[in-house]
Amino acid sequence: MTVLIGLKQDNFVLITGDTKSTHMNGSNQTLDTYDSVVKVHPICENMIIGIAGSDRIGKAVVGAITPIFSLIHKLSVKEMIQHVQKTTIFIHDMYSQMHLDRDYDHLLLVVACIDHKEDKSYLYSLSSPSGFEPVEINGDCKAFGVKSQEVEEYIRTNMSRKYVNEHPIHLLSAAIRSIDDQMVSKDTYSFILNKDKTADYVFLDEQGNVKQ
């Protein structure tokens, strides 16, 4: 199980996720869980993607589009999202056809982008139940996965106070730590992409301290 949070602001986009991965067999039975799994991936200077559900399929999508989008191109964010959708559909369908004995190929992608020409930030979600039709997130922040409503409520309640003294990464990480679920880690991984084309990643442990 997974928690992903996307946040967009005028000068940056950010995705934070927990770091626990659940391995299941073809009958949807849990085999084991593993910590320290990175679920948020940089794609290029203006896109990052968070993966929930099938980590194997999600990473295949990331691996397919990263070398293409990392080259100089003139695509708009909306055109890039269309290519993400097409690539995800192809890889997901191919995986499903080759693994007919498995019925746990659910996949959710959270995509955060900055369009430098439009000077605008975007959040999208694409999921297997909806055929990976891109859904643009109109609000500034959106949580996905386990107890997402509780996570969003924590963020709304603490937004003002946390923004005064701390980077929003700490707020999103604390929101994930605030829920109690054995399938969700207290450790978090965040990737932030700034409008000036700089980027950074942060691991926070279960106390909210930066992990080296």
Rank of each mutant, 00 (worst) to 15 (best):
S54H: 11
Q85P: 07
A175N: 04
Y154M: 04
T22N: 13
I48D: 05
Q85R: 15
V62S: 08
G58Y: 11
K59Y: 03
H116R: 03
V210R: 14
S148T: 06
S148D: 14
G53T: 14
V38Q: 06
R156F: 05
G131R: 02
Q29E: 13
D103V: 09
T87C: 13
T22M: 09
K8V: 04
N158S: 05
E150M: 15
V40W: 01
T66V: 03
G50D: 01
D35M: 02
T66D: 02
D115R: 07
S27D: 12
C44M: 03
G17F: 03
A175I: 06
S21P: 00
K59N: 11
V13A: 04
A143I: 03
K197R: 10
Y163P: 02
Q82D: 14
D140M: 11
V146F: 12
H99I: 08
G58F: 11
K117R: 08
D32C: 13
D101Y: 10
G58R: 10
V37H: 05
F144C: 07
N194P: 00
Q85E: 14
A60P: 00
D101M: 08
V84W: 02
K142Q: 15
T157H: 14
Q97H: 11
S96H: 14
S96K: 15
I65L: 07
N165P: 00
S96W: 05
V37G: 01
Y95W: 14
H99N: 15
N25E: 10
G139S: 15
N46E: 08
V37R: 04
V210C: 06
R161D: 11
L108R: 09
V110Q: 05
S178K: 13
C113P: 12
R161M: 08
